[in-house]
Amino acid sequence: MAPKDGFSVSRRDFFKTAGVGSLATGLLGPVELGAQAGVREVGPGAVPIQLTINGRRHDLTVEPRVTLLDAVRNRLDLTGVKRVCDRGACGACTMLLDGRTVYACSILAIEAQGRDIRTVESLAAAPALHPVEQAFCEHDGLMCGFCTPGLVMATTALLEKTPNPTADEARRALDGNICRCGTYVKVLEAALATKGGRRG
């Protein structure tokens, strides 16, 4: 799939900048050369990567510094999970990597290759709702909604692993997510009330 933003460096540009030699001489200077033999390096310019997101393969071209969150939001227009603290402290960007919750803001896109990445968009096709999403709506487990997709993902991961969690297990599983509107009471109610939250 071609990058949507149209700004990414073309494949030809990438090969211009990504050669081993250009890096070794350009950035590190002669002192380092001895240690660099055989090192397979890419970047710092944009490089092609392949991500498996919501069961679908995406080819995109990003610099190694681009986070999984920014790649998914800005390049693939999957904007369900949000960028809030951008430092792994709030959980608004929560995605599932091989079934486990992670902070997508703190993982490089290039590092997520070969992993099973799931975003909130994986849960249900519009206009249907996933049972967790449904429970959040029924219990009013959301207000401004900006933290909600991240909390939905954390809740989904919890229920996939622990279909009938205790209140304490639910709290602990959601402790990596911050909500400023103060929906926690209702979110926990929703998490504990979700029926069929387990996938498959």
Binding site: K82, L129, D140
Partner: peptide, 15 residues
């Protein structure tokens, strides 16, 4: 239930 709950919870709402 709030009427925009579904689009927000599912991440479909565009902020």
């Amino acid at each position: 239930r709030r009427v925009d709950g579904p689009v927000k919870a599912s991440g479909r709402a565009k902020y």
